[in-house]
């Protein structure tokens, strides 16, 4: 399905809001299932979800922390006066996990959309171009910075520093070696970029034309209405549950 980017933004926003509004794991689970369905419908790479298996131990820790600090609920495991595991702890822990998965899933809805379309959508949504431009620069430079960081890491190791074997006291020195040049080069790039922008007439004229255009098609209106109906249905069920 070839949807307008704004439709996708809308759907991602709805899922995110639902994830933040609901506490109840049952409601969150329903939202998550719908989210997965949406990902399948849009043919998004939702198998990334299985990558989250690696964080299982973190989830367990989350549940324990919730149990330690949420004083309500029935204690399941107790050590003296401290509750190690409570029903409410599990309850809130699971809510947090589900929320996290839904937020990740909403992000994935936007995963393989073209960045320039995404930016154009933001412009069409009346977000000031200056802000959109900043986002654009950010997106554009992320791969370059990771690349640069990787190069510095490689350089350090090729010159004889085994990062796994560095002693604790020296670790700080090594990290200073890594981040000083990185920050410096970011600074230099920002400076160069601002000069280049001036030279090419950035914001010299009040309006700007766009090479690409995006349109909402019939299918977009249908999908948005459909999503709205489902959302209302969810909110309604949530209120009687």
């Amino acid at each position: 399905m070839q949807l307008d980017i704004r439709t996708k933004l809308f759907i991602a926003a709805i899922f995110s809001v639902l994830a933040l509004v609901y506490q109840n794991p049952i409601m969150l689970a329903i939202v998550l299932v719908l989210n997965l369905l949406a990902l399948i419908l849009f043919r998004m790479p939702f198998n990334i979800f299985f990558g989250f298996r690696k964080f299982i131990y973190m989830y367990v820790i989350l549940i324990i922390i919730q149990s330690l600090f949420v004083k309500s609920g029935e204690p399941l495991i107790q050590l003296g006066n401290t509750y190690l595991l409570t029903t409410d702890g599990i309850f809130y822990g699971i809510s947090i996990i589900l929320r996290f998965l839904i937020l990740a899933g909403s992000g994935l809805i936007l995963f393989n959309c073209n960045t320039s379309e995404l930016l154009l959508a933001l412009v069409k949504l009346r977000i000031p171009y200056e802000i959109v431009f900043m986002i654009q620069v950010g997106i554009r430079f992320i791969p370059q910075f990771t690349n640069e960081l990787q190069n510095i890491f490689n350089g350090i190791q090729l010159r004889g520093v085994d990062l796994r074997k560095v002693y604790k006291r020296k670790v700080i020195r090594v990290y200073i070696s890594i981040f000083t040049p990185l920050i410096y080069s970011v600074w230099q790039k920002a400076e160069k970029l601002s000069i280049l922008l001036e030279l090419r007439g950035f914001r010299k004229f009040p309006t700007r034309t766009y090479y690409r255009e995006i349109f909402l098609k019939k299918i977009d209106y249908v999908v948005i209405s459909f999503v709205l109906i489902i959302t209302v249905a969810i909110v309604y069920t949530g209120s009687i549950l």
């Binding site: 090729l158 004889g160 070696s177 890594i178």
Partner: peptide, 16 residues
């Protein structure tokens, strides 16, 4: 690194 010395095409990325 002990076997080979390497100078990158973009040397400013080697200075830290």
């Amino acid at each position: 690194g002990e076997k080979l010395g390497y100078v990158l095409q973009n040397p400013s990325q080697m200075l830290f």
